[in-house]
């Protein structure tokens, strides 16, 4: 399973990458904002997108909308991992088609739970 982790802070990308490794997902690529991530997604056969919201360039919500608007990418599981915690924002992300929403600071257990849940529901839908 190939993951793309999008966050403007390299420390956070490292944390997520390490946690994914611990969960058995060794194939993890990084991007520092939506603008960099979108062409990577379009050309990279990724299976799972984990993205922050608040980033310079293209923010995570716009990346999510771009993914959902792209015929090739629209089915991709997207987990938002962000410090954005306004209720209206979470509703907005849900309406834009996010599959999971984890707020920072987060725990390894929460990340695992959400990824498992998304993958389970994907497997069930197939």
């Amino acid at each position: 399973m190939k993951f793309l982790v999008v966050d403007d802070f390299s420390t956070m990308r490292r944390i997520i990458k390490n946690l994914l490794h611990d969960l058995g997902y060794a194939n993890v690529t990084e991007a520092d904002d939506g603008q960099t991530a979108l062409p990577m997604l379009q050309g990279g056969n990724f299976d799972f997108l984990i993205t922050d919201w608040n980033m310079p360039g293209m923010p995570g919500l716009d990346l999510l909308k771009a993914v959902r608007a792209d015929a090739k990418l629209k089915q991709m599981p997207v987990l938002m991992l962000t410090a954005e915690s306004k209720r209206e924002q979470i509703v907005e992300a849900a309406q834009a088609g996010v599959n999971g929403y984890v707020i920072k600071p987060f725990t390894a257990v929460t990340l695992k739970e959400k990824i498992d849940k998304i993958l389970e529901s994907r497997a069930g839908a197939k």
Binding site: D7, F9, T11, M12, R14, I15, N18, D22, A83, K104, P105, T107, A108
Partner: peptide, 14 residues
């Protein structure tokens, strides 16, 4: 692993 998680402060404070 906990040391790794403690570095998350840099993202929030940044």
């Amino acid at each position: 692993a906990e040391v790794l998680m403690a570095q998350g402060y840099q993202d929030i404070s940044g």
